[in-house]
Computed example of a mutant assay.
Amino acid sequence: MKQSAWKFSFLMFWLSLIVIAMFATSSSRTSAAPLAAITGTPTEQATHTPTNTPDTSTRTPTATPHRDKPGIADPLVTKSVNVKEARIGDEVTFTIKVTNRGNDTANDVVVTDPIPDYMDVIEATTTRGNVSSNGRTVIVNIGPVAPGEEITIRIRVRVNERAQPPVGRNGVSITTSSLGDDPGNNSSEVTFGIVGEATPSAEPPTATPVPTVAPRRLPRTGTNDSDKELIILGALVGLVAFALSLLMRRLRQY
């Protein structure tokens, strides 16, 4: 009897374990749906975009507008002079500025300044590039010029005797191998007045005219020249008369 009771207890123990295991399995399966609702994990239906909601992601531009156009290089040149008027022998300084108004680098930029024959070049300098000359023409080979970059060129000259009043002129031009350049800003010219003759190193003394003064007559203290001539003439006449009288006496004797 005792052995049957022990077997019955052992069987009930294992049945209880089986029931508990089955209950735990069913509980874990039913709690999965509420967990998803609490944590806010989106379901497959929530991922669908409503048909009346615009898709803003397609409106974002892929590139800035100016990059859609090809690059443009537009170098330009300006020129100024440091005087309004100059005389022969004066020094004059020309200032040339080169820049690039485009959005792309200007390549092979060259500045050419033909100096007129009435000006002699003293010095030519540039902030970038190589300066050379061909006869009386100053050439500055700058090379590439980036957008917004500025190069300054200065040319010192002296006005020579070939200068003719009233106006002196000097122009400069620029070239580039880049496409899209605006030819309307590729040259510049300045003018200045040419006045008078050469500027003397020192003012010459002014000649003062000497007034003509009539000679003053001295008081007569003796005989003048006309009286002497009369005396000599009278003496000669007397000698001639004396000689004639002697000759007449001799002729009478014979």
Rank of each mutant, 00 (worst) to 15 (best):
K2Y: 14
K2H: 12
A5L: 10
A5C: 06
W14L: 13
L17Q: 10
I18F: 00
V19F: 08
I20C: 10
A24N: 12
S27M: 11
S27H: 13
S28A: 11
R29C: 06
A32G: 06
A33N: 10
P34F: 06
L35F: 03
L35I: 03
L35E: 04
A36R: 05
A37G: 07
I38L: 04
I38G: 00
T39M: 11
T39A: 12
T39F: 13
T39S: 14
T41I: 05
P42V: 01
T47F: 14
T47A: 12
H48D: 06
H48N: 11
N52K: 04
N52D: 09
P54R: 01
P54K: 03
D55Q: 14
D55V: 11
D55G: 13
S57L: 12
S57P: 13
T58Y: 15
R59Q: 15
T60K: 05
T60E: 07
T62Y: 15
A63P: 06
T64H: 07
T64L: 12
R67F: 15
R67E: 14
P70G: 09
N82H: 13
N82S: 13
N82P: 06
V83A: 02
K84R: 12
K84D: 15
E85T: 09
A86H: 09
G89S: 05
G89W: 00
E91Q: 13
T93S: 00
V98I: 08
V98F: 02
N100K: 03
N100A: 02
N100F: 00
R101T: 00
R101V: 09
R101N: 05
G102P: 06
N103C: 06
A106H: 04
N107M: 05
D108R: 04
V109S: 01
P114M: 10
P114R: 08
P114C: 09
I115A: 13
P116M: 05
E123N: 14
E123R: 15
T125I: 09
T126F: 06
T127Y: 07
T127W: 00
R128V: 11
N130Q: 14
S133Y: 05
S133N: 13
S133W: 02
N134Y: 06
T137L: 11
V140F: 02
N141T: 15
I142N: 12
G143W: 01
P147A: 02
P147V: 01
T152K: 14
I153W: 02
V157Q: 01
V157T: 03
V159M: 04
E161M: 08
R162D: 11
A163V: 10
Q164G: 10
Q164R: 11
P165F: 09
V167Q: 00
G168N: 01
N170Y: 00
V172D: 07
S173I: 03
T176Q: 04
S177F: 06
S178M: 03
G180W: 06
D181F: 06
D181K: 09
G184P: 11
N185Q: 04
N186K: 01
E189T: 14
V195A: 00
G196V: 03
G196R: 03
T199M: 01
E203D: 07
E203S: 08
P204R: 12
R217K: 08
P219D: 08
R220H: 11
G222V: 15
S226R: 10
S226C: 03
L230H: 05
L233C: 08
L233R: 14
A235I: 07
L236E: 02
G238A: 05
G238T: 03
G238S: 05
V240P: 15
L246V: 12
M248P: 01
R250G: 05
L251C: 03
Y254F: 12
